[in-house]
Design a protein around this nucleic acid. Structure first.
Lengths: 176, 176
DNA sequence: TTTGACATGTAACCCGTTACATGATTTT
DNA sequence: AAAATCATGTAACGGGTTACATGTCAAA
């Protein structure tokens, strides 16, 4: 249930159309809250019904760009929601179940998938590091920048965790 | 879509009833794949329809304990599934959206929720460390044990990540 | 004028969650 | 006999995913 507020946050930074949001979500905020364009369009309609955003289109029709901007009520809602407590989320990953299953039925065939994940997490880690270098290195540290940087650092640590996990599992599987 | 295979894994370790599985899921496997009892009962019916498990009850009726055991076809299915590749999962957490929102609309009221999460993750970290001490310390390291231990270590690193994240955010919020 | 990129949708399905219902067994 | 606990369900709903449909605009 974070999508509406992720969208409000993104729209406050810059009024946008659905497609622009979808593209933006495949970067930045989307690294920590993924959403497809179908979800985004559905949610934008709801946000407007709730009176939190307003849209205008060149001419209201299918296929025509429609730009959304946050209304004062939307900003107030975001402030309200921001102060709520977030539920503790445990790690939840199919790969862990696969490794656990391998401990029971034998690890034949496991290494391939783990190797693929290792590559994937190494890539993501490199990407986050590149963003850190580009967006944060040697820039003035405002409160806002510091918070955004902490989120990115968490992403970096998360990827590191997986890289180490995959490496260790592979090492275990290679040991005669 | 891991629940059926998480259940197969758990049932291979020990044939059980739905409630026993639900209780077991609130520990061990459940630390990495949570499921409610409603989900588990629903899924057990499907597993039996698929011919992967077989159940017997003292007398087939509501309120009577029904124990499930894995059939050969179920074990074969688990071996097949275990070798599939797992999708890369990015970090996905409401708290990150809240912190990101705070960077845009101001952090008033954010600290409370972050402090609560910090406490929660410290607790979970302590729990995992206790399990590591109890279940793994000074025991012989079979292949199966080594794999299960790696999963637990990943959980420990995951909680450490959050503890550090929350501490850093709080420090940032406290700085005048 | 047709291809491709831009842009917005609809429909169906499944997993996970929430709230509630029902029966059996043990304890007080 | 009432209360608590063990045990198995039913029903409704919502978010996320997948597949598909439709319309606009610019360039080749």
């Amino acid at each position: 249930m974070s999508l509406p507020h992720a969208l409000l946050t993104s729209l406050l930074e810059k009024p946008s159309s659905g497609l622009e949001l979808a593209q933006r979500f495949s970067k930045s905020i989307g690294y920590f809250w993924q959403a497809s364009h179908q979800q985004i369009y559905r949610e934008l309609v709801r946000l407007e019904e709730a009176g939190w955003v307003q849209s205008h289109a060149d001419e209201g029709a299918r296929g025509r760009k429609r730009t959304y901007a946050v209304l004062p009520a939307g900003k107030a809602e975001l402030k309200r929601w921001m102060a709520l407590h977030s539920e503790h989320k445990n790690l939840r990953d199919e790969m862990m179940i696969r490794v656990r299953a391998a401990a029971v039925v034998g690890a034949k065939g496991l290494a391939d998938g783990v190797q693929e994940r290792l590559n994937s997490h190494r890539e993501q880690l490199a990407l986050y590091k590149a963003i850190r270098k580009k967006d944060f290195e040697g820039k003035p540290e405002t409160r806002a920048m510091a918070l955004q940087r902490r989120i990115l650092e968490a992403g970096i640590e998360y990827e590191r965790l997986y890289v180490a996990f995959c490496e260790d599992v592979l090492k275990e599987l290679e040991s005669t």
